[in-house]
């Protein structure tokens, strides 16, 4: 058999095995996951909204109240992560607790906790953004691009 034939045979075997594994694999329950994500994600946003109303009622302006709300939610996310609760919420809620800002706090605090044995520089400092880093990098990049488009359109 020539080289191409062998490669073809290997690809066939791999494809055949892929189909076998697909047929065995347990599937995610998409509907259940969506419902869980909706409920928990919605609840987190509702709590945020309550804080926003509270801060606005205390006489903060629109921007200041929004910043105070974000700060409070980040604090709660970090606290629950530190108490070992947020990963349990995440297990149930999936994207519902990853997408809100509390999830962002979780993704920074979790690696910071994990790597504190490796010291403050090469551990906490270096590893803190292993999960959140890409979000920050591409978030910043996309905002710059959108900013330029907005500027050019004006």
């Amino acid at each position: 058999m020539d080289g191409n034939g062998e490669q073809q045979a290997r690809e066939n075997r791999q494809e055949e095995y892929r189909l076998l594994v697909e047929s065995i694999k347990p599937k995610h329950n998409l509907l259940q996951n969506c419902v869980n994500a909706f409920l928990v994600g919605g609840a987190i946003c509702l709590i945020g909204q309550l804080f926003l109303i509270f801060y606005s009622g205390q006489g903060l302006g629109e921007k200041e109240a929004a910043a105070a709300t974000a700060g409070t939610m980040v604090f709660i996310g970090a606290l629950l992560t530190g108490m070992g609760v947020y990963d349990k919420i995440g297990k149930f809620a999936g994207a519902g607790s990853i997408v809100p800002i509390t999830g962002f706090a979780n993704s920074i605090v979790a690696p910071a906790m994990e790597y504190k044995r490796e010291g403050f520089v090469f551990g906490v400092g270096a590893k803190m953004f292993t999960v959140a880093g890409p979000v920050l990098v591409y978030g910043t990049l996309i905002s710059c691009i959108i900013g330029i488009i907005y500027f050019l359109l004006q």
Partner: peptide
């Protein structure tokens, strides 16, 4: 988990497999 996957306290769902 620390070496191969996510930090332990990371709130993510594990794959059923």
């Amino acid at each position: 988990e620390k070496q191969f996957r996510f930090p332990v306290e990371q709130g993510v769902q594990r794959s059923p497999t």
